[in-house]
Design a protein around this nucleic acid. Structure first.
Length: 804
DNA sequence: AGCACGCCGACT
DNA sequence: GTCGGCGTGCTC
C-alpha cells in the first residue's frame, strides 16, 4: 500500500485523470483517501486529492515520484463524496478536480506562490542581485512586476546561484482563543489567598472569582469582567495557581443563545397526513423522493422540522437546502430555535472563515443538521437520514458554472447512497417534478390549505394599458394608490414588489432614441446614480454618465426603466406621508443590514416595504395586508421557454406574503398582459390549471419535461470562427446522435457578445441519447488544442436553466 | 495550467 | 552567429 492515486489541481482535459505517486515511508499509515496532498508535477509543486491508496502502479517505478507532504490531518472528502465527485464529473462533463473543489469551502482551495531563492551568500554582479535587497529570497511576482530579466534569471539558475521554490498554501485559518481556569479547587484557593499579601487586591479578586466560577473563561472576558489586565493574571499562571490553554474556537455568525428555543408544534390534519409516509420511509431506511406540494403558509417548515426530529432520533443527520435568497434570519432562527447548536448554517453572506468553521462543525460531526444554500448538498455527513430541498423550483439550485449540476440530482444521488428520503417542497413545483410525481416516480404529498384556515388573499389584476388610456402616467394604478392609502390609514402594512429583471435602468436619449451600450458586450449599460456612472453587468466596464447624447448631442439624455430607487421617489411624491423601507442589492450589501431592515419593518417603523426578488420569499409579517406587484409581466418577455412558469411562480410566491395571520390579505397585480394565462391562473391560485396548460405548450414545442435539453454555447473573438465551429458541432451531433434527437442551431446566443467575444449556440432536444455524453466529450477533445491556444470557449450545459 | 523544448525570423 | 518569438507536448 505505498502508491497513491492522485487527481491534481490542473483543470485541463489532458490532466483529467489520476496520477500515481509513491507514499514516502514517513507518511505510511498517516495518509488516507480524501486528503489533500502536495505533489511534484513537472517542474512545479501543486495540490492534489488522494482518490485511492493501492500497492501497485502500472508505471515504470522510476517514473513514479513521491508525495511531498500532506495538507490535511484528516480527510476532507469522504469516500462517498469522492465517488459522488467522479459521478458528477461525468454527469456534467466537468473535470474531476472541479467537482472536488466545488464540494469544499473556498478556504480549502490551494494557493500557489513562486519564489526565487539564492543559494550562495556571495552577490552576483547584475541587476538581479539588487532586487533581493539583501534578503535571501525574492517573490516571483515582484520579479515580474519590476521587469526583471528572464535571461539573467535562467543564467543564474544554470550557474547554481539560485533556485525556484514553489510554495503551496491553503487559506484556512483557525480562530484561537485563550482560556483561563483555576488549577485548584475552592478550598485550595482559599489557602492561597490567605497566604497572599493584602496589597494584592486584584489578584485576590481574580481568585475569588474562580472560587465561585470554576469553569474556564475566555481571557479577554475575564479581563473585562474584573477590570484587570494581563499583567495581574500572568504571575498567577506562572505560580501555577491558574492555568491557561489555547483552544480553537468557531467564529459564530449567529448568536445562538439569543434565539428562543421552540418545541414541536401540534400538527394540522394535512400535516399529519403528509408526515406519515415520510416517517415510514425514515423508519424503514428506504430511499424515496417526495414532492411536497403545499400552498404558501400551509406549514411546510413544521413538516420539515418534525421529519428532521425523527431522523435525529435515529441518530442520523439532516441536510436542508433553501434558496440563497430566502436564507433569511427568520428562516435560520426557526431551525436554530428547534435544534439549537446542532445546526450549522452555510450561505454566501458568511465570511470565508465563518463558512469554513461551519463546514468544520459538520466534518467533525459536532452538528447534526445543516441548513444552507446550493453547495450545502455536499455537507460531509456520513450518516444522512433526510435531504430536504425547500422551494425546489428555485433557479438558484442550478449551478451556472462548472460543474453545472442541479442540486436536486445530487440530492437524489446522495439519498440513494444513504437509503434515505428526499423531500422537494414547493407551492409551485417545477413542471419536471410535478410531472414525475404524477407519473409515480416521486410520491406526491399535498397540503392545499393554509394554516389556521386563513383564506388566500384576494387578487386583483389591473390592466396598466387602461391606466395609460385614462391618463395615469405614474407607475401606480389608481386602485393600488387608493389601497395603499387605505392601509396606511388603518395602520396596516404594505409590501411592494418590483421585478427588476428585464427592466434594468438603461440610458436612452429622448430626442433620437440612442441607447448607450457596452463597447465590449451586446447589452445596454446600467445607470448607477451613486457615482453617476454607467456600468456593464457582464464585464464590469464602467464610464461616466455623459452630459449629452453621444450621438445627437441633445441634453435630454435620461435613464429609463424602473429601479427601486425610482419607485421609492415616486411613492414619496404620490403619498408623502408613507414611510418606506427599500430593500435591494444596494441597501442590503452590508452584513446584517438585511436583518436590520426586516426588523425595522417588523416593528412597524415603516408602512411600506419595497423590494426586488429578495422580498418575494419567506417573509412572514402578520400586519401586512396588501401586496402590490408593480410590473408583473416583466419576466414574460425574456427569451426563455420557462418564462411563463417563472412568472406564475413569482406571482404565487409574492401573493403568499399577504394576510398570513388574522387580517385578510389583498394582492394587486399590475400588468400589461392581463390576459396571459400565467398571470390569470396565478391570480386564481390554480396550479393544476397552469400545469395542464403549460404542459400542453411544452409538448407542442418539444421542451422539458417532454424532452431533455442540451445547450452548447461557443464563443470566440472572431464572429465568423464562432459561427463556423458551432455549425461543425451541430453537424457532428446530427451525425452521431440518433435520428430522434433534434438539433437546433447554430443561432446567435441571446447575448450576442460578451467581453468582446461573439457567442453562438446550438441546442439538442432529445428523449434518450445514451451516447450523447461520449459524443460531446469527443467534440471537446477534438477542439481541446484550439481551446487552449486560441480564444475558443465551448460551454456545454446539460439540462440548462438559463438559456442565455 | 504552466513550463521546457525547439524551430524560425530579426538583430548586434 | 544569437536572441527571443510562439507553436507543441508533457506532467505520475
Amino acid at each position: 500500500m505505498n502508491i497513491a492515486k492522485v487527481v491534481v489541481d490542473v483543470p485541463a482535459a489532458q490532466t483529467n485523470r489520476v496520477f500515481d505517486y509513491k507514499i514516502p515511508d514517513n507518511l505510511t499509515g498517516t495518509i488516507y483517501q480524501g486528503m489533500r496532498v502536495i505533489v511534484p508535477f513537472g517542474p512545479r509543486k501543486i495540490m492534489g486529492y488522494v482518490l485511492e491508496i493501492t500497492d501497485h502502479s502500472d508505471l515504470d517505478p522510476l517514473k513514479v515520484k513521491e508525495i511531498i507532504e500532506l495538507m490535511d490531518i484528516t480527510p476532507v472528502l469522504t469516500e462517498e463524496l469522492l465517488d459522488l465527485g467522479k459521478w458528477l464529473a461525468g454527469h456534467t462533463l466537468s473535470f474531476y478536480i472541479s467537482t472536488f473543489q466545488a464540494m469544499l469551502p473556498q478556504a480549502l482551495k490551494a494557493t500557489y506562490q513562486k519564489e526565487i531563492h539564492r543559494l550562495q551568500d556571495s552577490p552576483f554582479d547584475n541587476d538581479l542581485d539588487k532586487m533581493f535587497h539583501g534578503r535571501d529570497y525574492l517573490d516571483y511576482q515582484e520579479f515580474v512586476e519590476r521587469k526583471g530579466s528572464h535571461k539573467q534569471l535562467q543564467q543564474a539558475i544554470q550557474d547554481g546561484l539560485i533556485e525556484m521554490v514553489y510554495q503551496v498554501n491553503s487559506k484556512e485559518t483557525y480562530k484561537k482563543s485563550t482560556l483561563i481556569s483555576a488549577n485548584k479547587d475552592a478550598l485550595e484557593l482559599e489557602e492561597v489567598i490567605s497566604n497572599m499579601s493584602a496589597q494584592a487586591k486584584k489578584k485576590i479578586t481574580i481568585l475569588r472569582y474562580f472560587q465561585e466560577h470554576p469553569e474556564p473563561i475566555v481571557k479577554k472576558d475575564l479581563i473585562q469582567k474584573l477590570h484587570t489586565t494581563h499583567a495581574t493574571i500572568k504571575p498567577l499562571i506562572d505560580e501555577g495557581v491558574l492555568k491557561e490553554e489555547v483552544k480553537e474556537i468557531y467564529r459564530n455568525p449567529y448568536k445562538d443563545d439569543q434565539i428562543e428555543r421552540t418545541t414541536a408544534l401540534p400538527l394540522m390534519d394535512q400535516q399529519k397526513k403528509v408526515m406519515k409516509p415520510i416517517i415510514n420511509t425514515i423508519d424503514s431506511k428506504q430511499h424515496d423522493v417526495f414532492l411536497l406540494h403545499g400552498v404558501t403558509g400551509s406549514g411546510k417548515t413544521e413538516v420539515y422540522l418534525q421529519s428532521i426530529q425523527q431522523v435525529l432520533r435515529e441518530g442520523k443527520e439532516a441536510i436542508v437546502l433553501v434558496p440563497e435568497i430566502s436564507l433569511t434570519p427568520q428562516m435560520v432562527n426557526r431551525f436554530k430555535g428547534r435544534f439549537g447548536s446542532e445546526v450549522a448554517v452555510m450561505h454566501s453572506a458568511l465570511s470565508k472563515g465563518e463558512r469554513f468553521d461551519e463546514w468544520r462543525k459538520i466534518q467533525r460531526k459536532e452538528v447534526k443538521v445543516v441548513v444552507g444554500a446550493r453547495s450545502a448538498i455536499f455537507a460531509p455527513f456520513e450518516n444522512v437520514g433526510i435531504i430536504i430541498i425547500d422551494e425546489e423550483h428555485e433557479t438558484s439550485y442550478k449551478q451556472e458554472e462548472h460543474p453545472r449540476y442541479h442540486t436536486r440530482d445530487v440530492a437524489i444521488y446522495r439519498a440513494q447512497y444513504h437509503d434515505c428520503p428526499v423531500i422537494l417542497g414547493s407551492a409551485t413545483p417545477t413542471l419536471e417534478s410535478y410531472a414525475r410525481a404524477k407519473k409515480g416516480i416521486y410520491q406526491l404529498l399535498a397540503m392545499p390549505d393554509r394554516m389556521n384556515k386563513t383564506k388566500m388573499p384576494t387578487v386583483e389584476i389591473v390592466d396598466m394599458r387602461e391606466e395609460l388610456h385614462a391618463g395615469n402616467r405614474t407607475m401606480f394604478s389608481r386602485q393600488l394608490k387608493e389601497d395603499i392609502e387605505q392601509r396606511i390609514a388603518r395602520k396596516e402594512q404594505v409590501v411592494l414588489f418590483l421585478n427588476r429583471r428585464g427592466y434594468s435602468t438603461f440610458v436612452m436619449c429622448r430626442d433620437c432614441g440612442y441607447v448607450i451600450n457596452c463597447p465590449h458586450c451586446d447589452i445596454a449599460l446600467t445607470y448607477h446614480r451613486k457615482n453617476q456612472t454607467l456600468k456593464c453587468h457582464y464585464c464590469s466596464y464602467e464610464e461616466k454618465m455623459p452630459p449629452h447624447c453621444p450621438d445627437c448631442k441633445s441634453e435630454t439624455i435620461r435613464y429609463f426603466g424602473t429601479g427601486t430607487q425610482k419607485v421609492e421617489e415616486a411613492i414619496q411624491e404620490l403619498i408623502p406621508e408613507a414611510r418606506v423601507i427599500r430593500m435591494d442589492v444596494d441597501t442590503t450589501r452590508r452584513k446584517g443590514s438585511h436583518e436590520k431592515l426586516l426588523d425595522q419593518f417588523g416593528n412597524h417603523e415603516a408602512d411600506i416595504l419595497l423590494g426586488t426578488q429578495m422580498i418575494a420569499k419567506g417573509l412572514d409579517f402578520g400586519n401586512v395586508t396588501l401586496v402590490g406587484v408593480l410590473a408583473a409581466d416583466s419576466l414574460l418577455h425574456l427569451p426563455d421557454f420557462r418564462a411563463a412558469e417563472k412568472t406564475f411562480q413569482l406571482l404565487t410566491q409574492v401573493s403568499g406574503r399577504a394576510g398570513r395571520h388574522e387580517l385578510p390579505g389583498e394582492v394587486v397585480i399590475q400588468t400589461y398582459s392581463p390576459e396571459h394565462y400565467s398571470v390569470d391562473l396565478a391570480a386564481q391560485y390554480d396550479y393544476e390549471g397552469f400545469f395542464n396548460k403549460e404542459m400542453l405548450l411544452r409538448k407542442t414545442y418539444q421542451y422539458p419535461p417532454f424532452y431533455f435539453l442540451t445547450l452548447i454555447t461557443v464563443s470566440h473573438p472572431n464572429q465568423l470562427k464562432a459561427l463556423e465551429i458551432t455549425r461543425t458541432i451541430s453537424q457532428l451531433l446530427i451525425k452521431h446522435l440518433s435520428d430522434a434527437a433534434r438539433i437546433l442551431g447554430p443561432t446567435p446566443s441571446p447575448l450576442t457578445r460578451i467581453k468582446d467575444r461573439y457567442r453562438f449556440q446550438c441546442m439538442v432536444k432529445y428523449k434518450n441519447e445514451p451516447e450523447q455524453r461520449r459524443v460531446l466529450q469527443r467534440i471537446l477533445a477534438y477542439y481541446e488544442k484550439e481551446i487552449q491556444k486560441n480564444d475558443l470557449l465551448i460551454q456545454i450545459d446539460l439540462q440548462p436553466y438559463q438559456l442565455m
